[in-house]
Design a protein around this nucleic acid. Structure first.
Length: 814
DNA sequence: ACTAAGATAGTTTTT
DNA sequence: CTATCTTAGT
């Protein structure tokens, strides 16, 4: 290998090693450079010239415009490896920022492959937020926090804001906390303090009390010793601005700065980066930002594409390197994507190309369907067809604009018995039971965490109702002490009724005991003890509802996942920052997700349904975002197409039900922006059952002017209607695999959870072994009576869970 | 304190 | 339409 063995991996560098001499240096340096040229290290050999340039341009600012599938991550990781192997910096002197934990994890893994153990010493590789936390824990006192501050998630924030709104004597119906939380988030994305927000914004909420409320909120956070996510960026910025000496320390420390997905940075992140990247005159700013302006799809949450467009102005003398050589997709897919995105103005201008050309590559297919049901049915059929040709379901994805579109596909796949996986949606940590458990743990570690206190003080029920909480709250506010401390005081008094007093006494005693055990008992053991002794476990054990066993299972999982951490505190930190959980990758399943969550992923076959005006581009993006809104939608379309390696199938329907009522829809303008040379209008194939061959047959794409909107002519509609009817007859009842959804969401089987996957299980095609009226038991929903039978699908009125449709393989006669 | 009926809103999501 | 949240009633 290439000289990584001597890379030290200290967290703190012992002494700065001198920088590589400039190119004009002495003879030795030139000799070394010559040697380097001859003997390029292994890790550089697989790079194309542009990638190699991006890796090797270490001095001064560099912007890498990396198109989709051009090896962006490879460049980033190799660049780090290069910095390390040439001895230009220690691992701890490289600041490397990503947006998501997933990206950070991936980079760590890949650097690990390149440099082995040295990755252990990269303490500053992480998300903006996790690095922000790290900075704040070190310097908390400089922004008026203690270093053991709590990180609040959105749910905590909303509850807190609600309290503040109510405390101001405002109607929390008329002025929803959620909305205000959104506004605060927006301000923080822009890096604005209460004093700095625009007058108009301040006036827009609660009769002009916006600014006041924002300030009150910040004060409250301060007294709670807490931060919201925005503060994790803003506090470091404040700290650096008011403490130049601290900033200097980090300037000296970070010799190289790398930023991934630069097009997604918001103003606060930009300010943060500017502060850290500033160098005295003459010292090179070794900043490398990697991104793709064409994939900027988060404008609505504060990302400023402008940051990337402005890079060369911000960092004078910046080198801009474009990566346009694509290793992912066929020429048709790239051609279609390129032509589409070319309709955007205000781009830096890249055109992806590939060197591979295969006459067998299919063009991008555009399909029409009558309605979303038919769309789902046809996509399902295509998937099954591919599956018959032994394509893996794992290599296929359905990418939708909005999550409501997923439903139709899920329903269809359930009946087909196709395994699918929903990516996104509510996650593990957001579940009720996990949040409750976490609140217990938080309060043990953090007695001042009032939000945690309020969450669990009466969970399980301890007879501590609203009145008790209010009394406590008032007392705590009046004396400016945390609520747990207030509780400790108040149980000594006769303030409360005996019942409440007893309940509260027990809570206080419990927490005092657990806190005492914090240092001595292993944290997983303690966690279990807390859940048992608090009666929380028992609460779910006594709960007869169908989802209770699942919740208990999730709690066990929570404890299990703690094992990887050193302490309860370490675990809490992890959970507050890393909120995702991994999927079961062993299962072969089609992925269903939004276009937004698909960014960064790739699939052999990609289905893009719902390309209709109003849905995609979304009406609201058009109404609220105007031209730039449209452009962002177009970038989203571009992201969608470029996820595909080999097959990209786009669909649109003529009729869609929106908010319950049927609307006839027009095909998306984006379809008209696709180049005819790379696109085929899919004729219905044999596999559709033959009914698609004749009759309605001709699509508009076969006509002279293929890109006219004429889908909504009466003839077309009638033809579609016929086809639709035929389809129904052919596919009305079908059986193959029995399917069940695993996972226990908050709201029954419809909710999307991390393990919202389907497990195939074969069933017979024989007549049902059940009859209407049978009393049956279901693993998840409990007991119920069959009210209807349709092939292998049963409609059952469950005693607890209500009416559900399930497959017969999962119920037993009682 | 829990259930049932009524009201309401309804892109995209990470940290 | 339907999921979610709020309110009213037991």
């Amino acid at each position: 290998m290439s000289g990584f063995d001597d890379i030290p991996f200290f967290d703190e560098e012992p002494a700065p090693r001198k920088q590589q001499p400039p190119a004009t240096g002495g003879i030795a340096a030139r000799a070394m450079a010559a040697r380097d040229r001859q003997q390029r290290p292994d890790y550089l050999s697989g790079l194309n010239p542009e990638q190699a340039e991006a890796v090797e341009s270490l001095d001064g600012p560099v912007l890498v415009l990396a198109g989709a599938g051009t090896g962006k991550t490879r460049v980033l990781t190799t660049r780090i490896a290069h910095i390390l192997s040439t001895g230009r910096a220690f691992p701890s002197q490289i600041l490397s920022v990503t947006f998501t934990n997933k990206a950070a994890r991936e980079m760590k893994e890949r650097i690990g492959v390149l440099v082995g153990h040295a990755v252990e010493g990269m303490p500053w590789l992480g998300t903006f937020h996790s690095i922000g936390v790290k900075l704040l824990r070190r310097h908390a006192e400089l922004v008026g926090l203690r270093s053991d501050f709590t990180i609040l998630d959105t749910d905590d924030v909303i509850r807190l804001i609600k309290q503040i709104i109510q405390a101001e004597g405002l109607d929390d119906k008329r002025w929803p906390a959620k909305q205000f939380a959104g506004m605060i988030d927006g301000w923080k994305n822009k890096g604005l303090d209460p004093a700095q927000i625009p007058e108009g914004d301040a006036r827009a909420f609660a009769n002009g009390k916006g600014r006041e409320l924002y300030a009150a909120y910040q004060n409250r956070l301060r007294t709670l010793n807490a931060c919201d996510f925005g503060d994790l960026l803003l506090h470091p910025i404040r700290m650096f601005r008011s403490n130049p000496d601290v900033l200097k320390e980090y300037h000296d420390k970070f010799r190289y700065i790398l930023v991934d997905e630069y097009q997604d940075t918001n103003t606060a992140q930009y300010m943060w980066l500017r502060l850290l990247a500033q160098r005295p005159k003459g010292v090179p700013q070794n900043v490398c930002c990697v991104g793709d302006d064409d994939q900027s799809i988060y404008g609505w949450r504060g990302a400023e594409v402008d940051n990337i467009l402005r890079f060369e102005k911000d960092f004078p003398g910046a080198k801009v390197i474009k990566l346009e050589r694509n290793y992912r997709s066929t020429e048709h897919i790239l051609g279609a994507a390129a032509h589409l995105i070319a309709h955007n103005e205000g781009r830096l201008g890249k055109t992806l190309f590939t060197e591979r050309t295969d006459p067998d590559d299919e063009k991008v297919q555009v399909h029409a369907a009558w309605d979303s049901e038919e769309e789902a049915r046809a996509v399902g059929e295509e998937i099954e067809q591919l599956q018959r040709k032994s394509h893996k379901l794992n290599d296929m994805a359905i990418l939708v604009r909005a999550s409501f579109q997923m439903r139709e596909f899920e329903d269809r796949f359930v009946t087909l018995g196709l395994n699918y996986r929903v990516i996104g949606g509510p996650r593990f940590y957001e579940r009720l039971e996990i949040r409750d458990a976490m609140a217990y743990f938080r309060l043990v570690c953090q007695p001042a965490d009032d939000l945690a206190f309020e969450r669990i003080v009466n969970t399980p029920k301890r007879g501590l109702g609203d009145t008790t909480i209010r009394t406590l709250h008032d007392y705590a506010r009046a004396r400016d002490v945390p609520m747990l401390a207030a509780a400790t005081d108040i149980i000594e008094t006769d303030e409360l009724k005996p019942k409440a007093r007893k309940g509260l006494f027990d809570v206080v005693a419990d927490f005092r005991r657990w806190q005492g055990l914090l240092e001595t008992t292993p944290h997983t053991e303690l966690a279990e003890q807390i859940l048992d002794e608090s009666g929380y476990t028992a609460m779910w054990q006594n709960d007869k509802s169908a989802e209770a066993p699942g919740r208990l299972e999730n709690l066990k999982e929570l404890i299990r996942s703690m094992e990887a951490f050193e302490s309860l505190r370490g675990f809490l930190e992890h959970v507050s920052l890393v909120m995702d959980a991994e999927q079961n990758e062993n299962l072969d399943a089609v992925s269903i997700m939004t276009l937004h969550s698909a960014k960064g992923l790739e699939f052999d076959t990609v289905f893009l349904p719902g390309w209709e005006e109003g849905l995609f581009p979304h009406q609201r993006a058009l109404d609220e975002g105007g031209r730039s809104g449209l452009e962002e939608e177009r970038r989203l379309a571009y992201v969608g197409i470029t996820r595909a390696k080999h097959r990209c199938h786009i669909w649109f329907v003529s009729n869609r039900r929106i908010h319950g009522l049927w609307q006839s829809t027009l095909p998306s303008r984006f379809l008209d922006e696709l180049p005819i040379t790379h696109v085929d209008v899919a004729e219905s194939e044999q596999s559709y059952g033959g009914y698609g061959r004749g009759g309605y047959g001709q699509s508009r794409f076969d006509k002279a002017d293929p890109f006219q909107n004429n889908y909504s002519t009466p003839g077309w509609k009638r033809a579609q209607q016929n086809r639709s009817d035929a389809t129904r007859d052919n596919w009305g009842s079908r059986s193959g695999h029995a399917v069940e959804r695993i996972g226990y969401g908050e709201s029954g089987p419809r909710s999307r959870t991390i393990d919202g996957e389907l497990v195939a299980k074969s069933t017979s095609t024989e007549p049902s072994r059940f009859t209407v009226g049978d009393r049956v038991f279901h693993m998840k929903f409990g007991n119920g009576n069959i009210s209807a039978i349709e092939g292998n699908k049963l409609t059952i009125d469950f005693d607890k869970a209500g009416q559900k449709r399930v497959l017969d393989g999962f119920v037993e006669k009682v």
